[in-house]
Simulated assay, not measured.
Amino acid sequence: MDTEILTLQVTKFKCGGFALGVVVHHSIADGYGIALFLAAMSELALDLNF
């Protein structure tokens, strides 16, 4: 079975907001690692001007 190890989807809304969808295979990171990754992504998103 072919399984993606990391999938990200960003959806930008007309109002200026966005949603981030994340799917991570457990073989590359545990829950704590994913939480750190998402915290870093949100920190980067706060610095971007869309």
Rank of each mutant, 00 (worst) to 15 (best):
D2S: 14
T3R: 13
T3W: 10
E4Q: 07
E4Y: 11
I5L: 14
L6Q: 03
L8D: 05
L8F: 05
L8Q: 13
Q9S: 06
V10Y: 14
T11M: 06
F13H: 07
F13Y: 10
K14Y: 04
C15V: 12
C15L: 12
G16E: 02
G17S: 11
F18I: 11
F18W: 09
F18Q: 12
A19Y: 00
A19F: 00
A19W: 00
L20H: 13
G21E: 15
V22Y: 01
V23F: 03
V23L: 11
V24M: 09
V24Y: 04
H25N: 02
H26F: 14
H26Y: 13
H26R: 11
I28C: 01
A29W: 03
D30E: 12
G31W: 13
G31K: 03
Y32F: 10
Y32L: 08
G33T: 15
G33R: 12
G33S: 09
I34K: 01
A35R: 08
L36H: 13
F37L: 06
L38N: 07
L38T: 05
L38P: 09
A39F: 05
A39L: 07
A40Y: 00
A40T: 04
M41L: 11
S42A: 13
S42F: 04
E43Y: 13
E43M: 12
A45M: 13
